[in-house]
Amino acid sequence: MDNSTVLFLIPVIALVLDFALGDPKWFPHPVRLLGKFLDCYRSWVQSIGMSNKIMGGIGVFGISLVIWGVVKVLLAIPFLGILIALYLAYAGLALGSLLSECKNAAKMLDGGRIEDARRAISGLVSRDVSELDEAGLRKALAETTSENLNDGFVAPFFYLVVTGPAGMWVYKTVSTMDSMWGYKNEEFKDFGYFAAKTDDVLAFIPARITGFMMLAVGRILKLDWKSAYDNLITDAAKTESPNAGWPMATAAWLLGARMGGKAVYFGEEKNKPVIGPEGTWTSLKLKRLGTLVTFSAIFSAVFLDLYFVMVWAAGM
Rank of each mutant, 00 (worst) to 15 (best):
D2I: 05
D2A: 07
F8K: 04
F8G: 04
P11M: 08
V16T: 06
F19P: 02
A20S: 14
G22E: 06
D23M: 09
P24A: 07
K25A: 14
F27V: 06
V31T: 05
V31S: 07
R32V: 00
F37D: 02
F37N: 07
D39N: 13
C40R: 13
S43A: 15
Q46A: 10
S47E: 13
I48H: 15
M50Q: 11
M55A: 09
M55D: 01
G56W: 01
I58Q: 05
F61N: 06
S64A: 12
V66K: 09
W68E: 02
W68I: 01
G69W: 14
V70D: 11
L74N: 01
L75W: 09
L75S: 11
F79R: 11
L83E: 13
A85R: 01
L86R: 02
Y87G: 02
Y90E: 00
A91T: 00
L93C: 05
L93A: 02
L95F: 10
G96I: 01
G96C: 11
S100C: 13
C102H: 04
N104Q: 15
L109S: 06
D110T: 07
D110L: 11
G111C: 07
G111N: 15
G112E: 12
I114W: 06
E115D: 14
E115S: 10
A117Y: 02
A117K: 01
R119Q: 14
S122T: 06
S126R: 14
R127T: 05
R127K: 15
E134T: 08
G136V: 04
K139C: 05
A140D: 01
A142T: 05
S146G: 08
N148D: 11
L149A: 03
L149Q: 02
D151E: 09
F153W: 09
V154N: 00
A155E: 06
F157D: 00
L160M: 10
T163A: 15
G164T: 05
P165F: 01
P165Y: 04
M168P: 00
V170Q: 00
Y171L: 03
K172M: 09
S175R: 06
M177I: 04
G182K: 01
Y183W: 09
N185W: 15
N185R: 14
E186D: 15
E187F: 11
K189Q: 12
F191V: 03
F204T: 05
P206L: 07
R208L: 13
I209Y: 10
G218N: 09
R219D: 07
L221S: 10
L223N: 04
D224K: 08
W225V: 01
W225Y: 15
K226L: 13
I233N: 08
I233A: 12
I233L: 14
T234M: 11
T234S: 15
A237K: 15
K238S: 07
S241E: 10
P242Y: 12
N243E: 14
G245N: 00
P247Y: 03
M248V: 06
A251G: 09
A252S: 15
W253C: 03
W253K: 06
L255F: 10
G256R: 02
G260N: 09
G261F: 12
G261V: 12
A263I: 05
Y265D: 03
Y265I: 03
K272W: 09
I275K: 02
T282F: 12
K285T: 11
L289M: 08
I298K: 03
F299K: 03
S300R: 03
S300Q: 07
A301P: 02
A301S: 14
D305M: 06
L306V: 15
F308S: 05
V309S: 06
M310I: 11
